[in-house]
Design a binder for these strands. Structure first.
Length: 482
DNA sequence: CTATGGCACGGATT
DNA sequence: AATCCGTGCCATAG
């Protein structure tokens, strides 16, 4: 009885505080959560991080589970039941997605890690043949100076001075690198990276006419989303500018080190970072079409977070003047641990059903996205809509194909129709007008108004029919530099 | 006259 | 309550 009371006291912040903090934690992305936990760990002695148990088979660390969800999975795997689990994010343990491609994890783990981690090596291999012998040290210098975004923050002049070569020679090397795989890598700033990507993209796709100027002349405005001012500068309408911003956000990536860039609507830098550190990684077991999906919900730290039992002990002998503070620490720590568990649990549950529902979309692309609303999912999971909203906003998912997309895309209402529209345009023999497209779509079961077709077109960056007729579509990607 | 883009309204979603 | 999205109507460009 007494014990029970004590426990009750210990958890005193009551359900409202729990709920509030769980909610708050729920909307944090991995990176933000990482910061939060780090901060808490260093300021609160009651909280401790212990090395978690490891899976005896694959050696991966485990969080909050006794058995490794992969090694101890049931043998008769039905394809539609995804394997969802919490996965630690620790640089010394590559995620499952990277891990699973490996035939013999033991022997080549190191190589694998080098490949995964080292962008510089990856890029260097691509361009090595294009470089003159003498330029290699310069390239190496540039590549090793990249920051984590894949950008080059060191002034070119410095590098030129170091190697005692003219500036334009360094620029030449930079240019070669920029057109290598993470397109725009080694640019001096996001703006430059975008321009390179736009340039390459323009060779294969129609792009909004003013996009380039918007980046060149209105970069600052674009960044700060001062769209109306930008519209004036470019002498166009507000909606046009918004379209451009959306197009850029969707197709380009100012930080070449990672796949996709979501949208411009979240201005904080830490948020953008989320676009190359996904919150969830989905991969396909053995690349087998019928196998279950492996879903890792990334947890920002490795090991088990708990309330330090020694601290709890020590509380009894606390000097009176410290007692209150220590108690506060303890309370804070227990609350955090509890809330974290709740958060993770909620997130896993959400992702689980989401992945199950959208399996086809994940594997086969945009056309198979089932239009799902947050509200309906909330009903199914019996949680409040706002819970879903919070959990979804600001999070990103890495798909089996390596693309990183915002989790919100799983709730896009018209993506499948737009995919159909792209398909129609791609296979048209003669440029179709919006009205004709609307009819075609209707024939395929999507009833949309002509005006809506125009909007979708704009969203996909497809030019109107009369312009399309003039520009021959260069289909498939042409080799960039032979 | 036709095809599209702008703007604004109303209903759904968050 | 605020925002997003599909649509209708009208202006404009070709």
């Amino acid at each position: 009885m007494l014990l029970r009371q004590l426990q009750a006291v210990e958890v005193r912040p009551t359900t409202t505080a729990h709920l509030a903090q769980t909610m708050a934690l729920l909307e944090l992305s991995v990176l933000e959560l990482h910061e939060k936990i780090e901060a808490e760990l260093s300021s609160n002695p009651a909280l401790e991080l212990i090395e978690g148990p490891f899976c005896p088979i694959c050696q991966k660390p485990l969080i909050d589970t006794l058995d490794c969800p992969l090694c101890s999975r049931p043998k008769n795997l039905s394809g539609d039941e995804p394997i969802v689990f919490l996965s630690p994010r620790d640089d010394s343990y590559p995620s499952y997605a990277a891990w699973s491609e490996e035939e013999e994890p033991e022997s080549s783990l190191e190589e694998r890690m080098v490949e995964c981690e080292d962008l510089a090596v990856y890029v260097f291999r691509q361009i090595a043949s294009e470089l003159e012998e003498a330029d290699r040290p310069i390239a190496a210098h540039l590549l090793t100076s990249l920051d984590e975004d894949g950008l080059l923050r060191t002034p070119l002049i410095e590098i030129a001075a170091y190697h005692r070569v003219p500036l334009n020679r360094v620029e030449k090397v930079q240019r070669i690198i920029q057109y290598a795989d993470p397109l725009g890598v080694a640019s001096s700033d996001p703006r430059q990276a975008l321009l390179i990507q736009l340039d390459v993209l323009a060779q294969t796709h129609p792009i909004p006419p003013l996009a380039q100027r918007a980046i060149e002349e209105g970069w600052q405005l674009l960044l700060h989303q001062q769209y109306s001012t930008l519209a004036k500068l470019l002498n166009t309408s507000l909606a046009k500018v918004k379209e451009i911003a959306e197009f850029l956000g969707k197709n380009l990536n100012p930080y070449p080190a990672r796949a996709n860039w979501g949208d411009l609507h979240h201005p904080t830098p830490s948020y953008r970072a989320a676009y190359y550190t996904p919150d969830v990684i989905i991969s396909l077991l053995n690349n087998d079409e019928n196998a279950p999906l492996v879903v890792e919900v990334i947890f920002p730290i490795c090991g088990k977070l708990r309330v330090n039992p020694l601290f709890r002990e020590g509380l009894r002998q606390a000097p009176p003047q410290k007692l209150e503070q220590w108690q506060a620490h303890l309370e804070r720590a227990t609350l955090l641990v509890k809330c974290l568990q709740q958060r993770n649990q909620a997130l896993i549950r959400l992702i689980q059903t989401l992945v199950k529902r959208q399996r086809k979309f994940i594997l086969e692309g945009d056309a198979y996205l089932y239009p799902l609303t947050r509200a309906s999912l909330a009903q199914e999971l019996e949680v409040h809509e706002s819970t879903i909203s919070r959990a979804v906003s600001g999070k990103t998912v890495q798909l089996p194909n390596g693309k990183i997309i915002p989790l919100a895309k799983f709730f896009d209402r018209s993506l499948h129709i737009r995919a159909e529209l792209q398909e129609i345009i791609a296979s048209e023999s003669h440029p179709l007008t919006d009205t004709e497209i609307a009819e075609l779509l209707r024939a395929r079961g999507f009833q949309v108004a002509r005006r809506t077709v125009a909007k979708y077109r704009a969203m996909e960056g497809i030019l109107p029919a009369h312009i399309r007729s003039k520009v021959k579509k260069p289909h498939k990607s042409a080799a960039s530099t032979p």
